[in-house]
Design a protein around this nucleic acid. Structure first.
Lengths: 116, 116
DNA sequence: CGACTCGTACGATAGCCATCGTAGTACGGC
DNA sequence: GCCGTACTACGATGGCTATCGTACGAGTCG
């Protein structure tokens, strides 16, 4: 059972046309959430919440994932006890072509700059 | 005297390498500030604060312009009694190539979508 | 069943922030 | 010097939010 079935527990997601640019920008303006999104983009697929090692408690991690989901940046699905997270790349690219890539590259540049 | 000399009153701006992506995104995540930036981008040049007709008081307008300046998005200069505002396009393009254009196009798309 | 893991819910707290109103400063013109 | 315009500074306020801790629920494995 490498991929357990999707649980019945539902998670509310905004529809594609409900996603607001301001909400996306606000979600990504937090360093912790930007970091999550960068890791999610690097791993071409879904990652469980527990995969991330963030310097905050689990409560706070849950909070950040919810903000990302409710702003339309990520999609969340239960698979057994794990909650899998994936970027909503299709929707974001349809709504704001080029934006996600520009944001990711900007974040990568800044990370490289700060590491120097 | 079409363009009065720059006043001695100084306004603190972050240096190019002090501009943080998170700060820029946070600045643009406010609808009022996003609107200001869009108008500023449309008008290829400097605009005075009073040019903008925002549905908030002048106090609040001042606040938004300061947030934009301190995050590195705009440059502000006193010219006589007027305070002129300009996008820091050169700095932003150097730091985050393509980001500003992607953001502006995303905002334009969303505006078109909402108007429909 | 029982234990364990993963994640949630709820309450609390402290800090930030968008907004306002009022009072004040800087500059240019009369 | 005096007035008007343009913007600021300060204090207040209400709302949002990032963080935590603890207690709980859902699912898996023995």
């Amino acid at each position: 059972m490498t991929t357990p079935a999707v649980s019945s527990r539902a998670l509310p997601h905004p529809a594609r046309d409900e996603v607001r640019l301001e909400g996306v920008l606000h979600a990504l303006s937090d360093p912790m959430r930007l970091r999550i999104v960068r890791e999610l983009a690097a791993a071409q697929g879904e990652l469980s919440c527990s995969h991330f090692e963030l310097p905050v408690t689990k409560s706070t991690t849950t909070h950040h994932f919810r903000v990302l989901r409710e702003s339309g940046v990520i999609r969340q699905v239960y698979r057994g006890t794990a909650k899998m997270n994936g970027l909503r790349r299709d929707d974001l690219d349809a709504l704001f072509p080029g934006l996600l890539d520009a944001l990711l590259e900007a974040a990568a540049r800044q990370a490289a700059r700060r590491a120097d």
